[in-house]
Computed example of a mutant assay.
Amino acid sequence: MSASSAPRPFSTRRVAGLIRKEVRQVLRDPSSFVVAIILPALLLFLFGYGVSFDPRHYDLGLVIEQPTPETGSFATSLTNSPFFDVEISRDRRVLEPQLVAGDLHAIIVLPASFSEEAYRRHSAPLQLIVDGADPNTANLVEGYIELLWVNWLEQESISRGNAIAKPPISIEHRIWFNAELASRNYLVPGSIAIILTLIGSLLTALVIAKEWERGTMEALLATPINVTELLIGKLTPYFILGMGSMGLSTLLAVIVFDVPLRGSLFVLVGISAIYMLTSLGQGLLISTLTRNQLVAAQIAILSSFLPAFYFSNFVFELESMPIVLQWVSYAVPARYFVSSLQTVFLAGDITSILLFNAAALSAIAAAFFAITLLRTRTRLD
Rank of each mutant, 00 (worst) to 15 (best):
L126F: 08
I107H: 04
L104A: 05
I145D: 06
F177A: 05
A112C: 07
I208H: 12
I199D: 02
W149L: 03
K234N: 09
I158E: 14
V109Q: 09
N185A: 02
M217I: 11
I169D: 13
L126D: 06
A222L: 15
I158G: 12
I195C: 04
E154D: 13
R184G: 03
T216W: 01
E180M: 03
D134L: 08
E117Q: 10
I192H: 02
I194Q: 09
I195M: 05
G143L: 00
L126V: 02
N185E: 01
T228P: 08
T236Q: 07
L140S: 11
M217S: 14
G200A: 04
P125F: 00
R214C: 06
A209S: 15
A138Y: 02
G215D: 08
A209T: 07
I145C: 07
V207W: 14
L110D: 00
E142M: 10
I194Y: 04
T204P: 11
V141W: 03
E117C: 01
L198Y: 05
E213N: 10
I225L: 09
P125C: 01
N136R: 13
H105Q: 13
A193H: 07
L153A: 06
L110R: 02
E172G: 10
E117G: 00
L203H: 07
G102W: 04
S201A: 13
S157I: 01
M217A: 13
N178H: 02
E172P: 07
E218K: 14
L187E: 02
N139Y: 12
G161H: 12
Y144T: 00
A118Q: 08
Y186R: 10
L203D: 05
T236E: 07
W152R: 05
E172F: 10
L187I: 00
P167G: 15
K166L: 09
R120A: 06
L140Q: 12
A219L: 15
I129D: 15
I158Y: 15
N162A: 12
L153H: 08
I107G: 00
V227W: 05
I192A: 05
S157E: 06
T216P: 07
P168M: 11
G161I: 05
I169G: 13
D134N: 14
N226H: 09
K234F: 02
K210P: 09
G161F: 12
S183Q: 03
A101W: 06
D134G: 06
R120E: 10
I107E: 00
L140H: 09
E146Y: 10
N185M: 04
E116F: 04
L206R: 10
N185W: 00
V188R: 02
A163R: 15
L220C: 05
